[in-house]
């Protein structure tokens, strides 16, 4: 039994070591909260500043990160690394914490079936980002005011929200990093939005990255993922789009590798 105890002990050590959470430099992290007038929710916002941050002389592109409480440190660390690898100017990484349940804020209509019993807060959440958060970032943190220098990054329902931003609020963001997006939601509702707003959006210049995991075989991810890519490729002449299916990883496991792929695509191709 001694051997078994040793094996369990070693496994615990491996697990604990891999649970270590990356924390982005506290000196370069600013934090504040906004009580939204759009939906009444209170959002905790974190901003990762570039190493050589000089707001008096420079305007910075910004990446708005959904599920910020989970993804902020990883995205900020990797923006730092990737931007210095190329090398190119780093960005402001803006983490949007949870003000409401994510199933409310990130979904465009009520429904979804299964565990999702309510939703439909995406429009108000989008108005919060557009009218409250982005102006604050531009005024207080020297975020660039051009659409092409604003990126949204989201995973799962966050990816659905990014797709909703693309189809219904295309003037807000010029770049989209959509990871395992729940495009199936409510009978592919974002496809309907895309169709409805295609003529308004199709000539806008934009970068789109779509990623998912190869093991996402639960019966609703792959077909809408590939159909959405084909729709954008066929109907948007000024789009630069790429996709990546992360081998042998599932919905959660593919998130971080796809964040790295998406950020590499963004830093390499930004216009």
């Amino acid at each position: 039994m001694g051997k078994m105890k040793k094996i369990v002990f070693i496994l615990i050590i491996i697990l604990l070591a891999s649970c270590k959470k990356e924390v982005f430099s506290p000196e370069l992290t600013k934090e504040f909260s906004i009580l939204s007038t759009s939906n009444g929710a209170n959002y905790n916002i974190k901003v990762a500043l570039p190493q050589d941050y000089s707001p008096e002389t420079q305007k910075y592109p910004a990446i708005y990160v959904l599920d910020g409480e989970e993804n902020f440190n990883f995205v900020a660390e990797n923006c730092n690394t990737i931007s210095s690898d190329f090398p190119t100017t780093n960005v402001l990484v803006v983490s949007i914490g949870y003000g409401n349940d994510r199933a409310v804020d990130y979904t465009p209509v009520e429904g979804g079936g299964g565990a999702v019993t309510s939703g439909g807060g995406a429009e108000k959440f989008m108005l919060f980002i557009k009218n409250e958060l982005i102006p604050k970032m531009e005024n207080d943190y020297s975020a660039d005011t051009l659409r092409k220098n604003r990126t949204i990054l989201g995973h799962s329902f966050g990816g659905l929200f990014g797709a909703y931003a693309f189809t219904s609020f295309n003037k807000v963001f010029g770049n989209y990093i959509l990871l395992s997006p729940s495009l199936w939601y409510e009978n592919e509702i974002v496809f309907r939005f895309e169709q409805g707003n295609r003529n308004i959006n199709k000539n806008n210049k934009q970068l789109v990255f779509l990623g998912m995991g190869q093991l996402e075989n639960s019966g609703q991810m792959l077909a809408p993922f590939k159909a959405f890519i084909q729709l954008l490729q066929n109907n948007y002449p000024d789009i630069k789009i790429t996709s990546h299916i992360e081998p042998q990883l599932s919905h959660q496991g593919s998130k971080n590798p796809n964040i790295i792929e998406g950020l590499n695509f963004y830093f390499q191709n930004r216009y």
């Binding site: 592919e188 309907r192 169709q195 093991l215 075989n217 792959l222 077909a223 159909a227 084909q230």
Partner: peptide, 25 residues
């Protein structure tokens, strides 16, 4: 060896099929 195929058959949109097959340890 994993293999799966899905078809999106929403009457509002064009029918679309996608498949993945792969080998993993």
């Amino acid at each position: 060896f994993d293999s799966f195929k899905e078809t999106l058959e929403n009457p509002e949109f064009e029918k679309f099929s996608a498949k993945e097959s792969f080998i993993s340890p």
